[in-house]
Amino acid sequence: MGRPPPLTDPDRFTAFYRAHVEAVLRFVTRRVEDPHLAADITADVFYAVMQSAASYRPQRGEEIAWLYGIARNQISNHARQHAREAVRRQRLAGRRLLDDQDIERLEERIDASRAARQLYRRLQQLPEAERAVLELVAVDGLPVSAAAALGIRPGTARVRLYRARRALRADTGPAPSQEPLWEMT
């Protein structure tokens, strides 16, 4: 964590990608149902990483928190610009098409993440600031200190996390899996 990800060297970027692609893909598939979209957003995350590697500051948090912040932005951008993105993606040439095995593997991941997506839908009722902290801590398993990915201080994150947990307990009862939301991984 001591220095920015060394993404100018292709071999080091490959190692960085391999070290983090599974975590990013899990993050995305908990929020997206379409396997093509999950693959596209994951690719967009690492493209954004290459473009913004110089902005990574180790003192603000771990690499995975930085990646999750980028992934959240990519998912939000897609939601806001769905129609324009669909047209742009159709115009792109030279992208690798997913074969049947790729689709099958992504569908398996999506099926495996179905319960998490149901929980995520419940989270949509929370205020955005509280939901973002709860997602990073409870869903993605990062410490409260990773709040830097959201641009807030750990103390602020603790307050928002408390409010989110309290709201979920009061409004929705136990999570569909019968485990409290903050204990799910």
Rank of each mutant, 00 (worst) to 15 (best):
Y162R: 13
V139M: 01
R31A: 14
Q124F: 13
F46V: 03
G69S: 04
Q51P: 00
E104S: 11
P174W: 12
Q90V: 04
R12Q: 12
R122P: 05
R121K: 09
E135M: 10
Y68T: 05
L168N: 06
E104W: 07
I41Q: 08
V21C: 12
G61K: 08
D40I: 14
E33W: 13
A167D: 08
H20K: 00
T42C: 07
L142K: 03
R96N: 01
V45D: 05
V139A: 01
L97K: 07
A129Q: 11
R80N: 12
R153F: 01
E22W: 15
R158T: 00
S145W: 04
D100C: 05
R109I: 05
D9T: 10
A38H: 02
Y17G: 10
N77M: 09
L98Q: 05
L134T: 00
D44F: 10
G61A: 12
Y162N: 09
H20Q: 01
N77F: 08
R3L: 14
D34Q: 04
A54W: 06
Y47I: 13
M184N: 06
P176Q: 01
Y120C: 00
Q90T: 12
E179P: 00
Q59M: 14
I75A: 08
R84M: 04
Y120P: 02
L168F: 11
Y120G: 00
V49E: 02
F16H: 14
N73M: 13
G2L: 00
R117T: 02
A116I: 00
P143G: 07
A39H: 10
I75R: 04
A19L: 15
I70E: 03
V21D: 06
R158D: 05
A38M: 06
Q74V: 13
R30F: 08
A93W: 00
M1C: 09
L106H: 05
E107Q: 13
I75C: 11
L119K: 01
R12L: 11
E104A: 12
R121T: 00
T185F: 13
T14S: 12
L142G: 01
I110G: 11
L123H: 09
T42P: 08
A93Q: 09
R114H: 12
A19W: 06
V144S: 04
P4T: 00
V139H: 03
V21N: 14
A167C: 04
A146K: 04
R96D: 00
L67Y: 03
A129V: 13
R84K: 11
A93K: 03
R31V: 03
A112Q: 06
A54D: 13
E107V: 10
H36N: 08
H78F: 15
P10W: 03
L161E: 07
R91A: 12
R95G: 04
V28M: 09
L134R: 01
L97V: 11
Q59G: 06
S55R: 15
G2T: 07
A170N: 05
A147G: 08
L150D: 01
P58W: 01
V24L: 10
V24C: 02
A149L: 02
